[in-house]
Amino acid sequence: NQESVVAAVLIPINTALTVGMMTTRVVSPTGIPAEDIPRLISMQVNQVVPMGTTLMPDMVKGYAP
């Protein structure tokens, strides 16, 4: 099972992602793959992401799977 990126904290809208904001977990449905965390650093979320929420591609500005 592939791990997906999950919010480790509440991430406010338009916040640039940092390593500490993200964790990984096997979830269903799957979100952004864990191995993409290095690509996500400094990208901004386009909505509020509650802690424990799986990051989906459409939540991150400029992210393309």
Rank of each mutant, 00 (worst) to 15 (best):
V60W: 01
L17Y: 01
V26H: 15
I13V: 12
Y63A: 05
T15E: 10
Y63M: 04
M56W: 05
P29H: 15
S42H: 07
V6E: 04
D58K: 12
A16V: 08
N1M: 10
D58N: 13
L17D: 00
P57E: 09
A8N: 06
T53Y: 10
A34C: 03
D36V: 05
Q47N: 08
P57V: 10
K61P: 07
G52F: 07
A7K: 00
N46V: 04
E3I: 09
P65K: 02
S4K: 02
A8L: 14
S4W: 04
T18W: 05
T24H: 08
V45W: 01
M56S: 06
G20D: 14
I11G: 00
L40R: 00
T15N: 06
V6K: 02
A16K: 12
V6G: 02
G62N: 05
N1I: 13
T54S: 05
P33A: 06
G20M: 12
A16I: 14
P29L: 10
G52V: 02
P33Y: 13
M56K: 09
A7I: 02
N46R: 09
R25V: 05
G20Y: 05
Y63V: 03
T18K: 13
E35H: 08
D36W: 04
P50M: 15
I11A: 00
L17N: 00
S42W: 11
P38C: 03
V19N: 14
P12Q: 08
M22T: 04
V5C: 03
P29T: 07
T15D: 08
A64M: 11
R25I: 05
T15H: 06
T18C: 03
T30G: 10
L55H: 00
T24G: 12
I13A: 09
A64S: 15
P65Q: 13
A64E: 09
S42V: 04
K61Q: 10
V27F: 02
P12M: 13
M56D: 05
G62R: 08
V19F: 13
V49R: 02
T54G: 02
L55R: 00
M43G: 04
M21A: 06
M56N: 08
I11V: 07
G20C: 04
N1L: 15
V5R: 00
M21T: 04
T18E: 13
G52H: 09
D36G: 14
S42F: 14
T15V: 11
V45A: 07
V45P: 02
G31P: 00
I32M: 05
I37V: 07
R25G: 10
V9F: 14
S28H: 15
V45L: 06
I11H: 00
D58V: 12
M51H: 12
P29K: 08
V60D: 00
M59L: 04
M22H: 01
D58G: 13
I32K: 00
V9G: 05
V49I: 13
G62S: 09
G20E: 11
P57F: 08
V6D: 00
P50Q: 08
Q44M: 14
Q44P: 08
V9H: 11
D36A: 15
N46G: 04
G31V: 06
N14F: 07
S4L: 02
T15L: 07
S28Y: 12
D36L: 07
G20K: 13
I32G: 00
A34N: 05
Q2F: 08
E35I: 14
A16L: 10
I41E: 09
G62L: 11
V27A: 08
I13K: 15
I41G: 03
T53V: 13
T18I: 04
E3D: 11
A64L: 13
T53N: 15
D58Q: 14
L40D: 00
V26K: 14
A64R: 14
E35Q: 15
I13D: 12
R25F: 04
E3Y: 11
M21R: 05
P29S: 10
G20T: 12
T30P: 14
M51F: 13
G62C: 04
G31N: 01
T18H: 15
M51E: 15
I13E: 10
N46H: 09
A16Y: 13
I11N: 01
E35P: 06
P50F: 11
M43A: 14
R25W: 04
P33M: 13
T15C: 03
V19K: 14
G62P: 08
E35V: 15
M56Y: 08
P50Y: 09
V27Q: 12
P65H: 05
T30W: 07
L40K: 00
V26E: 06
M43I: 05
G20N: 13
M43N: 04
A34K: 10
P33C: 04
P38N: 12
I37P: 00
P29Q: 06
Q44D: 12
R39V: 09
T30K: 11
I32D: 01
P12A: 14
T24Q: 14
S42T: 10
T23S: 11
E3P: 11
T18L: 11
L10M: 10
N1F: 12
V19M: 15
M22R: 00
N14L: 07
V49A: 04
V49T: 04
A16G: 07
P38V: 07
I13C: 03
N14M: 10
P12F: 04
Y63Q: 05
V9L: 13
V45D: 00
M22N: 01
L10V: 08
R25K: 10
N14T: 04
P33K: 14
E3F: 09
A64K: 15
M22P: 01
N1W: 08
T24R: 14
T23G: 15
P65S: 10
G62Y: 11
G31I: 03
R39F: 11
T23N: 09
I41T: 14
V5D: 01
T23P: 01
G62M: 06
S28N: 14
S4V: 03
V26F: 06
L40I: 13
V19Q: 07
S42L: 11
V45Q: 01
G52N: 15
D36F: 13
I41W: 05
I13L: 13
V60H: 01
T53P: 00
G52P: 01
V6F: 02
P33H: 11
A7G: 03
V49Q: 01
V27N: 06
P65E: 10
I13R: 08
L17M: 12
V27L: 06
M43V: 07
A8G: 05
L40A: 01
P65N: 08
V5F: 01
R25H: 10
S28I: 05
Y63K: 05
M21Y: 09
L40Y: 02
Q2L: 08
M51P: 06
G52L: 06
T23Q: 11
T24W: 05
V60L: 15
A34F: 04
M43H: 07
V6W: 02
P12V: 04
P12R: 09
T15I: 08
I11Q: 00
D58P: 12
D58F: 09
K61H: 07
Q2H: 10
P57W: 10
P12G: 10
N1T: 15
T23V: 09
L55V: 11
I41A: 11
V27G: 10
N1E: 11
T53F: 05
A16P: 12
N14G: 09
P50E: 09
T24A: 11
E35M: 10
R39S: 09
G31K: 02
N1Q: 14
V27I: 07
V60Y: 02
A8H: 07
N46Q: 15
A34T: 06
L10K: 08
P65T: 13
P57Q: 08
Q2W: 07
E3L: 15
S28E: 12
G52D: 09
V6Q: 05
S42R: 10
M43T: 06
N46E: 09
T24F: 10
M51T: 13
R39W: 09
P65F: 04
I13H: 07
P50H: 09
K61W: 08
E3M: 14
N14D: 11
M56F: 11
M56V: 11
P33R: 09
V27D: 05
G62Q: 11
A64F: 11
P38I: 06
S42P: 03
R25L: 08
A8T: 07
M21W: 03
N1G: 14
D36K: 12
P29G: 05
A34Y: 06
M51V: 12
T24V: 07
Q2S: 14
E35C: 03
M43C: 04
P33V: 06
E3G: 15
R39C: 03
I41N: 05
V60G: 01
E35Y: 13
Y63E: 04
A34G: 09
V45K: 00
S4Q: 02
I37D: 01
V49H: 01
G31R: 05
T30I: 15
T15F: 05
M56H: 12
T53Q: 07
P38K: 07
M59K: 02
K61D: 15
M51L: 05
T30M: 10
G31Q: 03
A7F: 02
V19D: 08
V6T: 05
P57K: 13
V9K: 15
Q47H: 07
I41F: 10
V49W: 01
T23L: 15
L17H: 00
E35L: 14
V49G: 00
E35A: 10
T54W: 02
M59W: 04
P57G: 08
N14H: 15
M43L: 13
K61G: 11
T30C: 03
P33N: 14
I32Q: 00
P12K: 10
V9N: 09
